[in-house]
Amino acid sequence: MSVQSTEGVLAGRLVMVTGKGGTGKTTFAAALALLSAARGRRTLLCEIDNQRPSLTPIFGSEPRFGPQQVRPGLDMCNIEWEPALESFLEGLVPSRRIVKLILGNPIVSKFLDVTPGSQELVELSALGQYVDQYDMVIVDMPASGHAFSLLDITRSAMGLFRSGPVRRRASELRELLTAETTRVAFVALPEEMVVNETLETIQRMRSFELIGGEPVVYLNRATLPTLTDGERELVARLGELELDPAEAEFVRAGRWEDVLEQSTAHSRERLQQGLDLEPVLVGPVAPGRSAREVVQDVAVSLGREVGLTRRDLSWT
């Protein structure tokens, strides 16, 4: 079984973080970016064309198209469609004036806006440019279904654009995605349907050979069993008694945690068997923490695995 660790992720050059909605993609992308920067690698944390960027509450300012520094060695950006398109065209057409001419034509911009696949290709292309400028680019991707389509675009584009610079760009991007140093990190939760989606997406990505590096799966909010079977049976015996409401709350709380623990063990096993890889387990953070604090907590917890301490990761 392959063991994919955070250490391996940090050795990559382009890391795309995805998963089912609500699993903590943004948190993990930001935490991995903190770790990478703490390792001394110039790191860019990107999100893709979010009209309401998820990184804003974490870093206290809104990411723009142009990278901005959020801490030493760590920049963030939001790959917005219009400036990305401009920079895409500038890369293909030698003259700025001509780019302006293309973009200045309202019908052409509309055409580019709605041409199937052009958005995805332009956004990926922006990522590709950043890979040349930074040691590490970490992307907070859309949820798995859309992330798959976005990554798959290099393949489709090769069929769609049969000649010209766009085709060449698509083929360069395909090369980038299939490089060993390109990784996908999946964030999953110990829940049946989240695990289903993780299994399906990774299996599909593997069969389409979309990504070069091995995927890593973070099983977020994981709790490992702490009670023995005998002790669990004792809880069950307590639950069978006639309990007053206050007493019953304790048994209910115990069952709640027990369900979490069982689901963690079960999910871990399914991921191991379905993907032949060992997921990285990350415990839950305390309730009521802010978006920023949650990122810090997760970074500290991942940092332990790679020898980085809270002090290395503190940021104000």
Partner: peptide, 10 residues
């Protein structure tokens, strides 16, 4: 220009 960028086939 569009022809140049996207390829004429497209």
């Amino acid at each position: 220009l569009l022809g140049y960028v996207f390829g004429r086939d497209f």
